[in-house]
Design a binder for these strands. Structure first.
Length: 353
DNA sequence: AAGACGGGGCT
DNA sequence: AGCCCAGTCTT
């Protein structure tokens, strides 16, 4: 026990030294603007740096300040987020921007406790922003940090549990130096990402291998321990793509399911409703041409698209139906402006749209 | 404590 | 096919 503190200091020194030789060059490190840092951190939640990078550039260019984001229509923000996944991040981002601009007088929360109150900001993100932008000594614990600490200190707690989150946060906070805490946090994540990688880390070349528990005990392949397996549910979806002249019928997805706030199509159950309107004559019916298999981390979707073209004289009646059913009629050349799930983008591409 | 929530890359 | 990624929120 008496040796713990010196060991911790040694660990932090090694990590920092490694980082000074091997930093990743990341654009959000050029700034101390909490808004830009927040933007980058939300984009990077559960997202690889390489995948998030183009979105960071798009967003920081379209919305250079929290005011710009606050003033934007939500539809536009979601459209810009299209393809990145976990769309509640975009909705929360926009919600918070409005809150900060209109309720907090444009003053970005400047400490861990207040940052934590923002929707979509948990302990990781609050630590990241408070340390990077404000020099607060709060340690981040992301997937990288779980892995590094688990291996180096030989912690066998299942990292999927809340107990582990507390344990690792306490440990990381005991390691973080009061001076340059942000640098330590960056160092931990870069070290986890480039040196202490999930699979096949190059431990022989690691400057920490001298006192790494997992390396010395041949547990690199075992740690960190993660028990929980996400189970994948299979779901079948049969969309009905309803067209009338240049108009397509779209459905905005509601909360409580995947893709909330994005646009897709009504499902084929709408056909029974369609049949009740004598005015909505079908000109052409195109049955599914293929089945799309779309894989999410937690759902395995088997999707078919049927297409119905109505007589263009049915335009006004269709409009009425859409209002009743909370559907949207969108001209074909405006489809690009809708935020759509990747699956739908794939379908449209096959249709030549 | 356990699920839900996307999409992509790598083995 | 399975795991992981600069996690958070809801139930």
């Amino acid at each position: 026990m008496s040796k713990k503190l010196p060991d911790n200091q040694a660990f932090s020194k090694l990590i920092i030294n490694w980082y000074r030789d091997n930093p990743r060059d990341l654009p959000w490190r050029d700034t101390q603007d909490p808004y830009i840092i927040w933007l980058s951190e939300i984009i990077l939640q559960q997202t690889r740096v390489a995948q998030g990078m183009p979105y960071f550039y798009k967003f920081s260019e379209a919305y250079p300040t929290v005011k710009d984001l606050a003033m934007a229509p939500e539809e536009e923000v979601l459209r810009l987020w299209q393809g990145l996944g976990y769309y509640s991040r975009a909705r929360n981002l926009h919600f918070c921007a409005k809150q900060i601009w209109f309720e907090l007088g444009g003053n970005f929360p400047d400490n861990y406790k207040d940052l934590l109150k923002l929707k979509g900001v948990g302990s990781y993100t609050a630590s990241a922003i408070s340390s990077f932008a404000f020099g607060e000594a709060k340690a981040v614990v992301d997937g990288n940090v779980f892995r590094v600490l688990s291996r180096f200190f030989g912690i066998q707690t299942d990292i999927a549990t809340g107990k582990a989150k507390k344990e690792f946060e306490a440990l990381a906070n005991s390691l973080i130096p009061k001076e340059n805490p942000g640098e330590f946090n960056q160092a931990m994540m870069d070290f986890g990402s480039r040196q202490c990688t999930p699979r096949n880390p190059d431990c022989e070349a690691c400057p920490l291998n001298g006192s790494c528990f997992a390396f010395k005990n041949d547990l690199i392949q075992v740690l960190p321990i993660k028990i929980k397996k996400t189970k994948v549910k299979e779901r079948k979806i049969h969309y009905l793509v309803l067209k009338c002249g240049e108009n397509w019928v779209w459905k905005k997805r509601s909360t409580g399911d995947i893709w909330a706030g994005l646009y897709d199509f009504p499902t084929e159950e709408i056909k029974s409703i369609l049949d009740k309107y004598a005015e909505l004559k079908t000109k052409e019916f195109i049955p599914p041409q293929k089945e799309y298999l779309h894989l999410l981390s937690h759902q395995r979707l088997k999707v078919q698209f049927s297409e119905i073209r109505l007589e263009s004289s049915a335009q006004d009646h269709l409009k009425k139906l859409c209002e009743e059913q909370e559907l949207a009629m969108v001209e074909e050349d405006k489809i690009d402006y809708l935020a759509k799930p990747k699956l739908i983008v794939n379908y449209l591409k096959d249709q030549g749209i």
